[in-house]
Design a protein around this nucleic acid. Structure first.
Lengths: 214, 214, 214, 214
DNA sequence: CATGAATGAGTTTTCATTCAT
DNA sequence: TATGAATGAAAACTCATTCAT
């Protein structure tokens, strides 16, 4: 058997195609936004011709929505798995949540969604509502659970759990945007481990020096 | 021929036109993104006809850049004024910085820039570099100064000032994006005062309960 | 004043444009059918660029419907005027109706509709219903009135008026189609006056020789 | 490998394919017109895949022409048989011709041709010439023969035979178009027997009441 | 032979840009 | 200056035609 030097012009991969197209599309949409994305470019990245897209999707908008959902669905499923493990201390659980999120969400395909969302929400308002209800709310609930447990156990000060969740999300949301959107322009952006470690430390111990006991 | 009843009106109008156009443009660009923005819509919001735009700007891109700069310049000028007032305690100075930023930047026209930046950086990479160098770096330097002073004075723990600045910016950046982009979809978004107050409190005192002195 | 040798590239004739476009469109649609008509061709015949069409019509289909209606409406109005003049003998009234129809309908722009209708009814069924109700029914009613009057007065045999109307319409419908569609292929097609004269004579007196009175 | 249980089926199928395709094609072409017809639809109606069409026909146009001819050829052959039977009275012969035409032409696949012809003559002028020469002329000659015989025998008034043939064809042509094109929109269209009976009666005896012999 | 996924030329449609008024 | 009708290049979309299986 020999290796084909030139890839076959016409491949036949009906089953794999939609996924390939959605992956390529999500990439370009996240890079350029919906309106600035040319289907030619998506087709090129998926290694097919423009017309092929229309075998699987009715329109550019349909492709956009399918691509977004295809990234969201595994995130949703992953979200189900975030069970606050009661064996862990609340501080440990929070740390695990953040690192789990980065590994399974922020650093994967799904991590392209926040940028896309911010950019396109003005043009696809229903996308924002969907995203908020299904992703943000759900994530916050997980964090709120952890914090509330910590407050109840006396590990944490009597803080407002939702307020803490907002800060945690601000930190994750910002990092993924900075990395995805401003990556090239921000050479001083730290590695995720360092960033999250440092941020969690600050969040945990605060800025203020604890006065020595008298 | 008839006499104009108000001969100065047109003159005044003429001088104000570029500004009016840039304001309207920034609004629409921030809402829809560069590619999805129609000059028809910008013209309509500015109350002029589409052709008029071309009397003042060479192209859609020129208008975009002018609109962005017109929002950035006052922000830059305002930035100059953030002198860390040595009379204030570091904690107080940080709080003042955050609220000043919201009042003078986040809640004004300039607050549209982060969304625009996130959305368009893929299409206008130079915009990202410019923005990072002129806005983010400068802002961070101000915060770093405050934190370093606090650490030196013993008010703060010996934290890494740049790391703190990142958290502070994450909090501001996220809030302005949530408000601008997700506003309609997030009915539970708190008022800025509450959000920043709560976040600063957390940042200052941390989550962890301080154990009572033995 | 001199005559402009080259027509101005950019004319400004907002009020006249829709009509010009619809006229050109009806022409091409009638020639080629809806699907085979290219908007480029319509634009060329109307002396504008392709984009101009979209200033006045939302889509090719909208242009099609507007063009059809614009031809139908004057026909409808003309139809209102067909009052069976009671001063005329029924034979005379029938003759006048047929010639009026040819002059005001068959030989005008409206005469393109039957061909268009036959060709496009499979793709635009609602067009057929509209056409039948508004044009065919109305025309038949006029003829039925004339025939019924003739039967009542004893000028005509006791025929079924609707059956006669069908024959009269068959004759008009066929002629207009033959002339419009097959014109080039049927060099022996008679002039309308001769055709209708001959047809009316046949219809009036029949084929059968009247036996001489005994 | 399995044995085919019915080894001849495929063979028989293969021979029948072109005919099945042409029948399906004529149907769709007559419904939608040439340009609006999708080969996908033709294939579906013929129960094969789109690619199969190209095993038998070089192009859409070739399929169109073949489908048209396949309907025309039996009509031509049938036409040869219309010998004016001298045993019949001219009135009887005319009546037989019309009913023969309906049964063998108008109500069969061939009856789709007039609609197709009217619709596509602008795009296929040669089709019009062919159709006129081979179908219309030939049919008219048959009718002209009958009428001339009737005039010569004194059964008919001394009418112009070609003029009569035109009326007879107008009646047949209109009916087949109305039925095929406007069928759904014209619920009051009479049955062919009634229509032709009534029309022939009118044509034979005329509208005018014959004055009683003095 | 038959299939139907893939292609790409050809159309429709959009909209930044121009320019006669 | 200001207007907005007109333009035409560019992008979305369709579908006859091809070809690997």
């Amino acid at each position: 058997m020999v290796f084909s030097l030139c890839p076959r012009a016409r491949q036949r991969r009906k089953d794999a195609r939609p996924g390939e197209l959605m992956t390529a599309a999500l990439e370009v949409f996240a890079e350029r936004g919906f309106a600035a994305t040319r289907l030619d470019e998506v087709a090129k990245r998926a290694g097919v011709s423009k017309g092929t897209i229309y075998l699987y999707f009715d329109s550019k908008e349909a492709l956009f929505k399918a691509a977004v959902e295809s990234a969201i669905i595994p995130a949703l499923e992953a979200g189900e798995a975030i069970a606050a493990d009661p064996a862990k201390s609340p501080g440990e659980a929070l740390r695990e949540f953040v690192f789990w999120w980065w590994e399974k969400v922020g650093s994967t395909d799904i991590g392209a969604l926040p940028k896309l969302l911010v950019a396109e929400i003005g043009n696809f308002p229903e996308l924002g509502i969907w995203f908020h209800e299904n992703m943000i709310q759900r994530g916050k609930r997980a964090v709120v659970g952890i914090i509330a447990r910590g407050v109840a156990s006396g590990d944490f000060r009597p803080v407002e759990p939702l307020g803490v969740a907002r800060i945690v999300f601000a930190m994750m949301f910002s990092y993924v945007l900075w990395r995805r959107a401003l990556g090239a322009a921000m050479p001083d952006l730290p590695e995720p481990e360092d960033y999250f470690e440092q941020a969690l430390d600050l969040l945990t111990h605060g800025l203020k020096r604890t006065p020595p006991c008298a």
